[in-house]
């Protein structure tokens, strides 16, 4: 099968890659670009471990063709921290013991950030429904909810201080 040349932007960096016409964005990110922070848990859009943003929308990268990244802005877990400074969500997940095995963590961080970008002050219920597509089998979600809310508070306070 003919490969397709794709020009895209990943975590702010202009990136070009070749991919097969039937190759998922997940496979491109992991196998061609070395972004293995994006995890595969199911390959069918049922677990959220491969969550990335595509032009600001939260998507499962296993349900996106690599070719669809042409001209798009892709965001992955690798783009959350600024150098060695963790994103408040990342720091909060460590501080609040919101990860155990950690395999779902990248997808949940990307998903939670996508929510807080839209809604800086979600209710627990809004948060739980937003994250319903991100399976976690270790934590029972309790500490994840607490960690996201704590990060949201920090981010609101920072925004207030700057505003």
């Amino acid at each position: 099968m003919k490969t397709i040349q794709v020009s895209t932007t990943i975590n702010g960096d202009a990136t070009e890659f070749l991919c097969g016409p039937d190759e998922s964005l997940l496979d491109v990110l992991r196998n061609r670009l070395g972004l293995t922070g994006v995890k595969e848990g199911c390959g069918t859009g049922d677990c959220g471990a491969c969550s990335v943003t595509l032009d600001g929308r939260l998507v499962c990268s296993c349900l996106v063709l690599g070719a669809e990244a042409e001209g798009a802005q892709i965001g992955t877990v690798e783009g959350l921290a600024q150098g060695d400074r963790l994103h408040p969500l990342q720091q909060s997940f460590i501080d609040h013991a919101a990860l155990q095995c950690g395999i779902c963590t990248p997808g949940i961080l990307v998903a939670a950030k996508a929510l807080l970008d839209r809604n800086p002050d979600p209710t627990d219920t809004e948060l739980r429904y937003w994250l319903a597509g991100n399976l976690c089998r270790c934590t029972g979600y309790d500490k994840i909810i607490h960690a996201v809310q704590a990060a949201a508070r920090t981010m609101r306070e920072t925004a207030d201080a700057q505003g």
């Binding site: 922070g37 595969e40 921290a81 460590i94 990860l99 395999i103 990248p106």
Partner: peptide, 21 residues
């Protein structure tokens, strides 16, 4: 006490290496 886990930063940044990585 409740210190941060040593594998925490690798796991929140996507650097931790799992079976398929």
């Amino acid at each position: 006490t409740r210190p941060p886990r040593p594998d925490g930063i690798d796991k929140v940044t996507g650097r931790a290496m799992y079976g398929a990585d």
